[in-house]
Structures are given as C-alpha cells and as structure tokens.
C-alpha cells in the first residue's frame, strides 16, 4: 500500500482546514491503517470507537430509510470528532479543536475520502 500517498492526503487536509488536530484511517472493523495523531491520542482506541460510531449511525440511516450514511460528527465542548465512511471497507476519523471550521471540513473531505478509497483498493 502507498502509505506516503496516504500521508500526503492527510497533510493536505490538515493544512486546508483550520482546527484539524488528528486523523486516523482505519478499516471499518476498527483496525488502524494509517494515523497522523498527537502523542496523547491512541489510534487503536480512536479507530475502535469510530468503527462502533459509524456502525450505529449506518444502521440508523438504514432503519430511517434516509439513504447511504456519509459521516457522523460528535460535538463536544472542546472539540469535534468526525467520522467518514470510505466505501464499506474503511473509514476516516478527523479530530478537531473548538475552532474547527466544520463547514470547510465537510467541503474538503469528500474528494480526500474518494482519493483515499482509491489508494486503499488499488
């Protein structure tokens, strides 16, 4: 797998969206594939949480008949955790501080997840 290309995609996302602090690409079963995180953030924990989060949200989308799940966002007093589905096999977690520009993140992430999806399934 082209890990350098994954690193470049994550770096671009972090540079383009103010407030992004950490990112993890994981398989949809919660096993991390590539991470760019601070020392205090455990990619194993985050990946497992994100997979569970996405699984519940995906079921909610199906049960309510609202189509295919695109993302979930956890809003907290000091920041955000956004989880994006990359096809059905992988996911992208983005952590941000309280200043995260969420609108910009939504806009910038879609092409990034498309490219990451291509990199993961060559």
């Amino acid at each position: 797998m082209d890990y350098d290309a994954l690193a470049v995609e994550l770096r671009k996302l972090r540079e383009n969206v103010t407030g992004v602090t950490d990112m993890v690409i994981a398989a949809s079963d919660g096993i991390p594939i590539f991470s760019d995180v601070a020392d205090a953030v455990d990619p194993l924990n985050i990946s497992a949480l994100a997979a569970a989060n996405l699984g519940i949200a995906r079921q909610a989308a199906e049960v309510t008949g609202q189509g295919t799940l695109a993302q979930t966002v956890v809003f907290s007093s000091n920041g955000y955790m956004a989880v994006y589905a990359i096809g059905r096999l992988a996911l992208l977690v983005v952590l941000g501080d309280s200043g995260l520009n969420l609108g910009r993140l939504l806009y910038e992430t879609r092409p990034v997840t498309d490219r990451i999806g291509t990199l993961l399934t060559p």
């Binding site: 890990y3 994954l6 994550l10 398989a27 096993i31 594939i33 590539f34 760019d36």
Partner: peptide, 12 residues
C-alpha cells in the same frame, strides 16, 4: 516534512 505512521495491516 511528512508526519504520521503506518500500522501493521498484517492484523487484517
């Protein structure tokens, strides 16, 4: 400078 690390995907 490129940051980040690859995880052992062998576990997959």
């Amino acid at each position: 400078a490129v940051t980040g690390r690859a995880h052992d995907v062998a576990t997959l």
